[in-house]
Protein backbone atom coordinates (compact mmCIF):
# COMPACT_ATOMS: atom_id res chain seq x y z
CA UNK A 1 0.00 0.00 0.00
CA UNK A 2 2.81 2.40 0.99
CA UNK A 3 4.48 1.71 -2.31
CA UNK A 4 1.43 2.84 -4.28
CA UNK A 5 1.05 6.10 -2.31
CA UNK A 6 4.75 6.88 -2.74
CA UNK A 7 4.50 6.36 -6.49
CA UNK A 8 1.48 8.61 -6.80
CA UNK A 9 3.16 11.29 -4.70
CA UNK A 10 6.34 11.23 -6.76
CA UNK A 11 4.32 11.45 -9.99
CA UNK A 12 2.22 14.35 -8.68
CA UNK A 13 5.32 16.28 -7.55
CA UNK A 14 7.20 15.66 -10.82
CA UNK A 15 4.07 16.65 -12.76
CA UNK A 16 3.71 19.88 -10.81
CA UNK A 17 7.38 20.76 -11.31
CA UNK A 18 7.24 20.17 -15.05
CA UNK A 19 3.97 22.12 -15.21
CA UNK A 20 5.58 25.09 -13.46
CA UNK A 21 8.58 24.87 -15.81
CA UNK A 22 6.29 24.93 -18.85
CA UNK A 23 4.32 27.91 -17.49
CA UNK A 24 7.60 29.74 -16.90
CA UNK A 25 8.89 28.89 -20.42
CA UNK A 26 5.62 29.91 -22.00
CA UNK A 27 5.72 33.30 -20.28
CA UNK A 28 9.38 34.16 -20.79
CA UNK A 29 10.00 32.75 -24.29
CA UNK A 30 6.67 33.79 -25.79
CA UNK A 31 6.79 35.00 -29.40
CA UNK A 32 4.72 38.09 -29.81
CA UNK A 33 2.12 37.64 -32.49
CA UNK A 34 -0.11 40.23 -33.96
CA UNK A 35 -3.68 39.08 -33.27
CA UNK A 36 -4.63 40.76 -36.52
CA UNK A 37 -2.16 38.63 -38.44
CA UNK A 38 -3.65 35.51 -36.89
CA UNK A 39 -7.13 36.65 -37.84
CA UNK A 40 -6.03 37.44 -41.39
CA UNK A 41 -4.30 34.08 -41.63
CA UNK A 42 -7.61 32.41 -40.74
CA UNK A 43 -9.20 34.04 -43.78
CA UNK A 44 -6.47 33.07 -46.27
CA UNK A 45 -6.89 29.79 -48.19
CA UNK A 46 -3.71 28.18 -46.89
CA UNK A 47 -2.39 26.73 -50.15
CA UNK A 48 0.99 28.38 -49.63
CA UNK A 49 1.20 28.77 -53.39
CA UNK A 50 3.23 31.96 -53.28
CA UNK A 51 1.19 33.64 -56.00
CA UNK A 52 0.96 36.84 -53.94
CA UNK A 53 4.71 37.16 -53.99
CA UNK A 54 5.19 36.28 -50.31
CA UNK A 55 6.63 33.10 -48.86
CA UNK A 56 3.33 31.38 -48.20
CA UNK A 57 0.12 32.37 -46.44
CA UNK A 58 1.69 33.09 -43.02
CA UNK A 59 4.10 35.63 -44.49
CA UNK A 60 1.27 37.17 -46.49
CA UNK A 61 -0.94 37.47 -43.38
CA UNK A 62 1.82 39.27 -41.49
CA UNK A 63 2.42 41.62 -44.40
CA UNK A 64 -1.29 42.47 -44.59
CA UNK A 65 -1.48 43.02 -40.83
CA UNK A 66 1.48 45.40 -41.04
CA UNK A 67 -0.13 47.20 -43.95
CA UNK A 68 2.66 46.21 -46.33
CA UNK A 69 0.38 44.23 -48.61
CA UNK A 70 -3.05 45.11 -49.97
CA UNK A 71 -6.04 43.37 -48.41
CA UNK A 72 -7.00 42.05 -51.82
CA UNK A 73 -3.52 40.73 -52.51
CA UNK A 74 -4.45 37.03 -52.51
CA UNK A 75 -5.24 36.04 -56.10
CA UNK A 76 -6.38 32.59 -55.05
CA UNK A 77 -9.02 33.72 -52.59
CA UNK A 78 -10.32 36.46 -54.84
CA UNK A 79 -13.12 38.80 -53.85
CA UNK A 80 -14.61 36.61 -51.10
CA UNK A 81 -11.35 36.41 -49.14
CA UNK A 82 -10.57 40.09 -49.76
CA UNK A 83 -13.92 40.98 -48.21
CA UNK A 84 -13.26 38.89 -45.09
CA UNK A 85 -9.78 40.34 -44.69
CA UNK A 86 -11.02 43.90 -45.14
CA UNK A 87 -13.53 43.26 -42.34
CA UNK A 88 -10.67 42.14 -40.07
CA UNK A 89 -8.49 45.07 -41.04
CA UNK A 90 -11.31 47.58 -40.94
CA UNK A 91 -10.68 48.98 -44.39
CA UNK A 92 -12.78 48.72 -47.51
CA UNK A 93 -11.41 46.71 -50.41
CA UNK A 94 -12.09 47.25 -54.05
CA UNK A 95 -12.92 43.89 -55.52
CA UNK A 96 -9.94 42.56 -57.44
CA UNK A 97 -10.53 41.71 -61.05
CA UNK A 98 -10.50 37.95 -61.42
CA UNK A 99 -8.05 36.66 -63.95
CA UNK A 100 -7.48 33.26 -65.50
CA UNK A 101 -4.58 31.68 -67.31
CA UNK A 102 -4.93 31.35 -71.04
CA UNK A 103 -2.83 29.28 -73.47
CA UNK A 104 -2.15 31.16 -76.68
CA UNK A 105 -2.01 28.11 -78.93
CA UNK A 106 -4.57 25.90 -80.60
CA UNK A 107 -2.08 23.78 -82.52
CA UNK A 108 -3.25 20.29 -81.64
CA UNK A 109 -1.50 17.31 -83.20
CA UNK A 110 -4.12 17.13 -85.95
CA UNK A 111 -3.85 20.69 -87.22
CA UNK A 112 -0.17 21.55 -86.94
CA UNK A 113 2.43 19.90 -89.13
CA UNK A 114 4.78 17.51 -87.33
CA UNK A 115 8.36 17.47 -88.57
CA UNK A 116 10.21 15.02 -86.40
CA UNK A 117 10.11 12.49 -83.66
CA UNK A 118 11.32 13.21 -80.13
CA UNK A 119 12.59 10.78 -77.52
CA UNK A 120 14.18 11.99 -74.34
CA UNK A 121 13.21 13.78 -71.15
CA UNK A 122 9.50 14.53 -71.18
CA UNK A 123 9.48 18.14 -70.08
CA UNK A 124 8.96 21.35 -72.01
CA UNK A 125 12.27 22.86 -70.83
CA UNK A 126 14.16 19.90 -72.28
CA UNK A 127 12.24 19.98 -75.55
CA UNK A 128 12.57 23.77 -75.89
CA UNK A 129 16.34 23.38 -75.83
CA UNK A 130 16.36 20.81 -78.62
CA UNK A 131 17.03 21.76 -82.22
CA UNK A 132 13.66 22.22 -83.91
CA UNK A 133 11.90 22.55 -80.54
CA UNK A 134 10.05 19.27 -80.40
CA UNK A 135 7.90 17.52 -82.93
CA UNK A 136 5.75 20.39 -84.17
CA UNK A 137 6.99 22.53 -87.03
CA UNK A 138 5.81 25.75 -85.33
CA UNK A 139 8.55 27.20 -83.12
CA UNK A 140 6.27 29.40 -81.06
CA UNK A 141 3.36 27.25 -79.94
CA UNK A 142 2.62 24.80 -77.14
CA UNK A 143 5.14 21.95 -76.99
CA UNK A 144 2.69 19.69 -75.20
CA UNK A 145 5.04 18.07 -72.67
CA UNK A 146 3.20 19.44 -69.65
CA UNK A 147 5.60 21.56 -67.62
CA UNK A 148 2.60 23.76 -66.82
CA UNK A 149 0.61 20.72 -65.69
CA UNK A 150 3.37 19.83 -63.22
CA UNK A 151 3.57 23.42 -61.98
CA UNK A 152 -0.18 23.80 -61.33
CA UNK A 153 -1.23 23.05 -57.76
CA UNK A 154 -4.90 23.34 -58.50
CA UNK A 155 -5.23 20.76 -61.29
CA UNK A 156 -6.50 23.51 -63.53
CA UNK A 157 -4.39 22.84 -66.62
CA UNK A 158 -4.16 19.70 -68.72
CA UNK A 159 -2.68 18.59 -72.01
CA UNK A 160 -5.36 17.71 -74.52
CA UNK A 161 -4.22 16.37 -77.88
CA UNK A 162 -0.83 18.02 -77.61
CA UNK A 163 -1.92 21.43 -76.37
CA UNK A 164 -2.36 22.72 -72.80
CA UNK A 165 -5.90 23.70 -71.90
CA UNK A 166 -6.99 25.66 -68.83
CA UNK A 167 -10.03 24.67 -66.76
CA UNK A 168 -11.37 28.14 -66.01
CA UNK A 169 -13.44 27.05 -63.03
CA UNK A 170 -10.37 25.71 -61.24
CA UNK A 171 -7.80 28.33 -62.28
CA UNK A 172 -6.94 30.84 -59.55
CA UNK A 173 -4.49 32.89 -61.62
CA UNK A 174 -1.51 32.15 -59.39
CA UNK A 175 0.75 32.46 -62.42
CA UNK A 176 2.79 29.31 -61.78
CA UNK A 177 2.14 27.97 -65.28
CA UNK A 178 3.09 31.31 -66.82
CA UNK A 179 6.52 30.98 -65.20
CA UNK A 180 6.88 27.28 -66.02
CA UNK A 181 6.20 27.66 -69.74
CA UNK A 182 9.50 27.96 -71.64
CA UNK A 183 7.60 29.13 -74.72
CA UNK A 184 6.01 31.99 -72.75
CA UNK A 185 2.63 31.38 -74.36
CA UNK A 186 0.51 31.34 -71.20
CA UNK A 187 -0.79 34.68 -70.00
CA UNK A 188 -3.23 35.88 -67.39
CA UNK A 189 -6.29 37.47 -68.96
CA UNK A 190 -9.38 39.01 -67.31
CA UNK A 191 -11.95 36.33 -66.59
CA UNK A 192 -14.74 38.44 -67.99
CA UNK A 193 -13.13 38.78 -71.43
CA UNK A 194 -14.92 36.66 -73.98
CA UNK A 195 -12.60 36.42 -76.97
CA UNK A 196 -8.90 35.74 -77.19
CA UNK A 197 -6.34 35.15 -79.92
CA UNK A 198 -5.29 31.55 -79.64
CA UNK A 199 -1.93 31.77 -81.40
CA UNK A 200 1.55 32.96 -80.50
CA UNK A 201 3.36 32.65 -83.83
CA UNK A 202 5.19 35.77 -84.96
CA UNK A 203 6.20 34.21 -88.27
CA UNK A 204 5.09 35.81 -91.50
CA UNK A 205 1.83 34.68 -93.12
CA UNK A 206 3.07 32.09 -95.65
CA UNK A 207 5.29 30.40 -93.05
CA UNK A 208 2.44 30.17 -90.56
CA UNK A 209 0.13 28.71 -93.22
CA UNK A 210 2.68 26.03 -93.99
CA UNK A 211 3.13 25.11 -90.36
CA UNK A 212 -0.33 25.17 -88.88
CA UNK A 213 -3.91 25.49 -90.09
CA UNK A 214 -4.97 27.43 -87.00
CA UNK A 215 -2.26 30.09 -86.91
CA UNK A 216 -2.57 33.87 -87.03
CA UNK A 217 -0.99 35.08 -90.25
CA UNK A 218 -1.53 38.76 -89.58
CA UNK A 219 -4.11 39.52 -92.30
CA UNK A 220 -5.48 42.50 -90.28
CA UNK A 221 -9.11 41.62 -91.06
CA UNK A 222 -9.87 41.67 -87.33
CA UNK A 223 -8.40 45.16 -86.92
CA UNK A 224 -10.64 46.45 -89.67
CA UNK A 225 -13.76 44.85 -88.16
CA UNK A 226 -13.27 46.21 -84.67
CA UNK A 227 -15.33 49.29 -83.81
CA UNK A 228 -13.59 49.85 -80.49
CA UNK A 229 -9.95 49.92 -81.57
CA UNK A 230 -9.39 46.91 -79.36
CA UNK A 231 -7.47 44.52 -81.63
CA UNK A 232 -4.20 45.19 -83.39
CA UNK A 233 -1.67 43.19 -85.34
CA UNK A 234 1.78 43.57 -83.81
CA UNK A 235 4.68 41.51 -85.18
CA UNK A 236 2.41 39.46 -87.48
CA UNK A 237 0.22 38.50 -84.56
CA UNK A 238 -3.20 39.85 -83.52
CA UNK A 239 -3.42 41.12 -79.96
CA UNK A 240 -6.56 42.10 -78.06
CA UNK A 241 -6.59 45.09 -75.73
CA UNK A 242 -8.83 43.66 -73.01
CA UNK A 243 -9.63 47.07 -71.54
CA UNK A 244 -11.25 48.19 -74.75
CA UNK A 245 -12.75 44.89 -75.91
CA UNK A 246 -16.50 44.69 -75.50
CA UNK A 247 -16.81 41.12 -76.59
CA UNK A 248 -18.95 41.85 -79.64
CA UNK A 249 -17.31 39.02 -81.56
CA UNK A 250 -17.07 40.72 -84.93
CA UNK A 251 -13.37 40.01 -85.24
CA UNK A 252 -13.92 36.34 -84.46
CA UNK A 253 -16.57 36.10 -87.12
CA UNK A 254 -14.26 37.38 -89.84
CA UNK A 255 -11.03 35.68 -88.77
CA UNK A 256 -10.11 33.41 -91.71
CA UNK A 257 -8.04 31.07 -89.55
CA UNK A 258 -10.73 30.96 -86.85
CA UNK A 259 -8.23 31.55 -84.08
CA UNK A 260 -10.03 34.39 -82.34
CA UNK A 261 -12.12 32.14 -80.22
CA UNK A 262 -14.67 32.31 -77.47
CA UNK A 263 -12.95 30.92 -74.48
Amino acid sequence: MGMIIATILVLVVVGLLIGLLLVFADESFAVETDPKAVAVRECLPGNNCGACGHAGCDAMAEAIAKGEAPVNGCPVGGAAVAEQISAVMGVSADAMEKKVAFVKCAGTCGVTKLHSNYVGIESCEAVAGMPGKGIKSCQHGCLGYGSCVKACQFEAIHIEDGVAKVDRSKCVACGKCVEACPQRIIELVPDKSVYAVQCASIEKGPVVKQQCSVGCFGCMLCTRQCEHDAIHVVNNLAKIDYEKCTGCGKCAEKCPAKIIRMR
Binding site: G120, I121, S123, E125, A126, G129
Partner: peptide
Protein backbone atom coordinates in the same frame (compact mmCIF):
# COMPACT_ATOMS: atom_id res chain seq x y z
CA UNK B 1 19.11 7.49 -67.62
CA UNK B 2 19.14 10.58 -69.87
CA UNK B 3 21.75 12.34 -67.74
CA UNK B 4 23.48 14.54 -70.30
CA UNK B 5 20.25 15.98 -71.63
CA UNK B 6 19.15 16.81 -68.09
CA UNK B 7 22.47 18.54 -67.40
CA UNK B 8 22.31 20.53 -70.60
CA UNK B 9 18.79 21.74 -69.76
CA UNK B 10 19.79 22.59 -66.18
CA UNK B 11 22.95 24.38 -67.24
CA UNK B 12 21.10 26.54 -69.72
CA UNK B 13 18.43 27.32 -67.09
Amino acid sequence: RPLTQLFKVTKSA
